[in-house]
Structure formats: structure tokens, C-alpha cells
């Protein structure tokens, strides 16, 4: 998928303002951004639901968009934005069977039972969708997308309403899909899920891409982040940290006060130097983790930076 200079406006509102984006095959790519950043608009363009006012978009090697008469998104592109579209009067199996019927007997489709099993809905396959929870609907929406054996799967907030078991199913399905060579583009506000799943992310703020690339690039970026530090002697650890170059002890990190946890703020190199100093001081390091994920930290920093520059 390759986007160049995408601009999309709705009346006076500029939803996308010159978006460039490349997503390679076999990748799970996350799109994050605050509300109103243009995520859903971008995903809608990928699905061919709308056409950009300016710029070019190529999907699976073909120009995408919507003509007057048809969606020009290539075959193999599917997904959902603003929640899956399901018909409550039909059962889960009925919804999938009706969709499969659209494509005809010669089409490249997965089995209905297979996709239901993949998303963990086999037990409720014959229940009316009317009684489904949000999480079950999300999983059924994913099953509907899987039915067409997608080459590009576009999902908007697929984790909404999912319980841990449902999340595990969705993770497994998307990971396997990418491993099989398909591309997955998804948006979510749940940074931990994106970090667990995505190889690359793009951060959108007010219709512009402010970061795009691998997660490791975010973590390695020249930005201090807060870490939780738990050792065998917190008072001694505090003294060591306070003396370390490039490390600050944070007492107002915004987290719940916990005497057993020390919060330190540092760049990664400074943190690398802190750990041997703690050990040298005879302290056992029991936990050293970011207070917020690198993605969330970057997201907050970049969006705040963007907001303050406006």
C-alpha cells in the first residue's frame, strides 16, 4: 500500500492533510492518533469507501478510490471502519453464509466453520447476532473479513469490547494472517495491543503523519521516558539513581504512590549505565519497566508537541 500526498476534506474540515504512507506486504501496521486525527478517514480511503481530494493511493499495485459506479479497491481488500456491519436478524453463521453467497462458488473464500473457529465463535455460530456483545460482534466482523482471504485487511478499533480471550483470538488471527503474507492495517487506542502486534506504526495528528516506522525506532528515539524501578532496597536505589548521570528520580510521575516503586526518568543509554551501578551497590534489580509503553509515550509526546505548535 502506497499513499502519496493524500488530502481529504469534509466541507471546511480537513481530515487528511498530505498523508504519505507505505505499508509492505506481510506487515501488521498500526495507525494511532487522538480523536479526530483522521484515522477512520484514512482507513476508509484504503477500503475504497471514499476518494481523496488530492494525492495518490495505490493498493496491491492498483490505484484505489471510488468511481461514481464502483469501489475501485482491488479484490483482496476488506475490513471494517466504525465497527463491523452485521445483520442482527441473522445468526452468526447466517451472516457469514450470506456474505459468502455474494462471492459465488468459484470465489476464493475460506470456510465458514473455519473462520468461526479462528475467532472463537463456534459455540454461538447458530445464535442470532441480535444478542451478541460488542466483543462478539468485533470477532464476527473479523471472521467476515477473513472469509474473503484478504491480502489487505483494514480494521478500525478491532479491540473494542474484547475480553482477554477474545483479544487472544484476534491477536492470533492477525499474526497468522501477516505470517501468511497478508497486510494488516489497524487503528486502535490500546497502545499495549498495538505494541504486541504491530511491526510498524504511524501516528496521525490533525490529519498529518507525525511519525511512521518501526516500534523500535520509537523506543530508540531521543526522548526521556519514565521507568518503574523495584530493587531489594529502594532507599539505596534512590541514592544511586540520584547520583547517576542523566537519570532523574521522579516523585510526581502521575502514577499511584507506591513506596515499593521508584520512578526514574532517563534516556536509554543513561538507563543502561544505571543498571550495573545498582548491581555494583549490591542491589537486586527486580523490575525495570516503562511506566507507559514507548508507543504511548511517543504518542503523548508527539501529540502534545503538535498541539503546542498550533
Amino acid at each position: 500500500m502506497r499513499a502519496r500526498g493524500l488530502v481529504k476534506s469534509f466541507d471546511d474540515v480537513v481530515a487528511l492533510d498530505g498523508v504519505d504512507l507505505d505499508v509492505v506486504a506481510g506487515q501488521v501496521h498500526g495507525v494511532v492518533g487522538p480523536n479526530g486525527a483522521g484515522k477512520t478517514t484514512l482507513l476508509g480511503l484504503l477500503l475504497g469507501l471514499a476518494v481523496a481530494d488530492r494525492g495518490s493511493l495505490e493498493i496491491l499495485g492498483r490505484p484505489a478510490g471510488r468511481t461514481e459506479y464502483a469501489l475501485a479497491a482491488p479484490d483482496g481488500v476488506t475490513g471494517f471502519v466504525d465497527g463491523p456491519g452485521l445483520y442482527p436478524a441473522l445468526t452468526a453463521r447466517g451472516n457469514l453464509a450470506a456474505l459468502a453467497g455474494l462471492r459465488g462458488p468459484g470465489a476464493r473464500t475460506a470456510g465458514i466453520d473455519d473462520v468461526l473457529e479462528q475467532v472463537g465463535l463456534t459455540d454461538v455460530a447458530d445464535d442470532k447476532v441480535r444478542g451478541f456483545s460488542l466483543g462478539m460482534r468485533q470477532r464476527l466482523g473479523l471472521a467476515a473479513a477473513l472469509l474473503t482471504r484478504p491480502r489487505l485487511l483494514v480494521l478500525d478499533e478491532p479491540y473494542n469490547g474484547l475480553d482477554p480471550a477474545g483479544k487472544r483470538h484476534v491477536h492470533g488471527v492477525l499474526t497468522q494472517l501477516a505470517a501468511d503474507g497478508a497486510t494488516v492495517v489497524l487503528s486502535s487506542h490500546r497502545m499495549d495491543d498495538l505494541e504486541a502486534l504491530c511491526s510498524e506504526v504511524s501516528i496521525l495528528v490533525t490529519g498529518r503523519v507525525v511519525f511512521t516506522g518501526p516500534l523500535s525506532k520509537l523506543a530508540a528515539a531521543n526522548r526521556e521516558i519514565d521507568y518503574r524501578l523495584v530493587t531489594s532496597d529502594q532507599a539505596a536505589a534512590r541514592r544511586v539513581a540520584a547520583d547517576a548521570t542523566g537519570v532523574r528520580v521522579v516523585d510526581d510521575a502521575g502514577t499511584r504512590p507506591d513506596p515499593e516503586v521508584l520512578v526514574v526518568r532517563a534516556l536509554v543509554p543513561a538507563l543502561d549505565e544505571l543498571v550495573p551501578r545498582l548491581i555494583h551497590a549490591g542491589l537486586a534489580v527486580r523490575e525495570l519497566t516503562p511506566v507507559v509503553s514507548p508507543l504511548e509515550s511517543a504518542f503523548l509526546a508527539l501529540t502534545e508537541q503538535q498541539e503546542s505548535s498550533r
Binding site: 504519505d20 496491491l60 482491488p74 504511524s202 503523519v209 511512521t212
Partner: peptide, 15 residues
């Protein structure tokens, strides 16, 4: 606008 690094070459004969 940020542009990402390497891009895939569109597959010939895409559906």
C-alpha cells in the same frame, strides 16, 4: 508529513 522508509514494488498483475 513523514514518509516511511522502504516501499514495496507493487506486484504486477495485482487483482
Amino acid at each position: 508529513t513523514a514518509t516511511i522508509a522502504p516501499t514495496d514494488v507493487p506486484a504486477p498483475g495485482a487483482p
